[in-house]
Amino acid sequence: MILAIDIALLVMLAVVGIAIIRLRNLFAVVMLSGIYSLLMASTFVLLDAVDVAFTEAAVGAGISTVLLLGVLTLTKSREKIPVTTPLLPLVTVVVTGALLIYGTWDLPAFGDPNAPAHRHVAPEYLAEATHETGAPNVVTAVLASYRGYDTLGEVTVIFTAGIGVLLLLSGSGVLRRREPEENDDKPGGAA
């Protein structure tokens, strides 16, 4: 049963992916990329990664779609037809994809209990998390307690992203106000 749902989801993912490449109407592309994220979120649920699925649904299908729609209001709603044939990008993508698939050959099988990831600290976390932190959700215990440093780093990354967007895009920055002054100074300096 799960296998049938897996196959159905993967087929739909492929169909949506191909449709995104083929379509020139950017509004449809934005909507389809939201659907793609929702399908990915469903796949994560099937893989028992509920926390990741939650994030994918909220960020990928929700916020990204809204932000891309916001960008659409600033640009045209149809993609330009490229003049040159995209041969170099095609070669790059095929080679990179082939390398990635080659890389998966060395990965342990899905759900392999002897995989390095399941033998290092994970058994200790699973055995001790509820007892040591009192949090029934082991994901939260690992994220906030055992790996508190990493999470602090992640929050700092989000903080930096927000500040960066503010500095670059908010129109009232110091840089923008100075520009006309500098242009005014130039002729004066030359004279």
């Binding site: 509920v50 926390d51 939650f54 009192g134 959700n137 994901v139 939260t140 215990a141 906030a144």
Partner: peptide, 8 residues
Amino acid sequence: GDYGPGGG
């Protein structure tokens, strides 16, 4: 977040 999926 301590009890179910989710968090900050």
